[in-house]
Design a binder for these strands. Sequence first.
DNA 1: TAATAATGTTAGATTAGTCTAAATATAAAG
DNA 2: CTTTATATTTAGACTAATCTAACATTATTA
Lengths: 224, 224
Amino acid sequence: MKPVVQLSFTEENYLKAIFSLSERNESFDTSTSEIADRIKTKPPTVTDMLRKLTEKKLISYEKYKRIQLTKAGKQVAILIVRKHRLWEVFLHDKLEFAWDEVHEVAEQLEHIQSEQLIQRLEKYLGFPQYDPHGDPIPSASGELNEIKRTILSEVQEGKACQVVGVKDSSTLFLQYLQQINVGIGTKIKVIEKIPFDGSLKITLKRDHQLSVSKKFCDNVLVTC
Amino acid sequence: MKPVVQLSFTEENYLKAIFSLSERNESFDTSTSEIADRIKTKPPTVTDMLRKLTEKKLISYEKYKRIQLTKAGKQVAILIVRKHRLWEVFLHDKLEFAWDEVHEVAEQLEHIQSEQLIQRLEKYLGFPQYDPHGDPIPSASGELNEIKRTILSEVQEGKACQVVGVKDSSTLFLQYLQQINVGIGTKIKVIEKIPFDGSLKITLKRDHQLSVSKKFCDNVLVTC
DNA sequence: TAATAATGTTAGATTAGTCTAAATATAAAG
DNA sequence: CTTTATATTTAGACTAATCTAACATTATTA
């Protein structure tokens, strides 16, 4: 199950980039320049690395063609995502970092090599299913337990849902959420949709009713 | 207060090695081959790095002479030690790693760059003064709060002391400690010293009396 | 104190990751 | 279906960290 070879930080970062870029389209592939943009490097550097990753059978790639992860490569990438998200939960829940402060540090922590560390961390955190942005945390075996998430704006009138994350993680937005007492796990029922401006009347915790803007609803991720 | 330049993992490791090696003698210096041994690298590699660290004014060094940290270099080294030991406390106290399992992972974690992370971690851990091996944790400003530690064998008859660490951190020894209920913070009173074999009669928690070997007493660090 | 041993440095090579400039292949547009 | 634009790769160079083999200096000891 564990990756056969020890990968460098750099290689891990490429795999993670390729993973998240390929998730964005139907064919699950990406290109040299997209990767270069993401990693903040130049295309020739990427080409070199692509050759190396092909050698290691972590991607499938032929020159001038688009790039896909192999099964092994995807496995590695998902495990990095797992580590990243678990660390984000730690930083947020335990060290009280704000939602928008966790990413940068998790970016470093995700490369720490120790099976045991991650297993124990996960246990310590109480086997969380989602990171502070509401993104799902893959299992130790690399399964990504994707759930169908939508934005609050798309929930039908009369339906109830539960907050699983946010799209915008600016301080302003997060502060507003805190103020109206909305966080991960909050149950929301959509009472009425106002077609004029797309705003919603919602209730929290069955009694408390309030009105929120379209912009708000576009940035709250929920599951029904 | 914070180091002006960003150092690589490798540079940090050299500074840490030079620090701990120079602490071992009166003149606070060390040599090329001692460093090579410690870092598990070859002397020529060390020579190159020494030149680089001299350039950056982190060590004072002339060729063929012995090596000392500058004030700046010592500051950096101590901050790495601080991070290392705080992480050790985290791994031991929170993630329930055994005393002898924490080192390797802390070795990686110590290089994570984030002032904030360390400050918050320290707070979260309750501002610990010592790591799981009883070594003192330097303050954020880099002060190493050294206390006078001795081995249990050197405590006088009739005197009481407190366990602050161990010299031997083998699993066998740690298991034995656990079995007789001795850990960091345990108060021990020396009742009698047997000159014949150097063994001690001691009491734990005033009532419970027991006898321990010289080997045991040589490996328990205490403060009086 | 001169010979020998131990320690340290130079020289030159290697690998990983990066770059710029030039060449080549694919895609887009007329 | 050519031409032009865009994307990608090759070539060649650079830095950091490492190595081995050869050379130089310092320390030891006979």
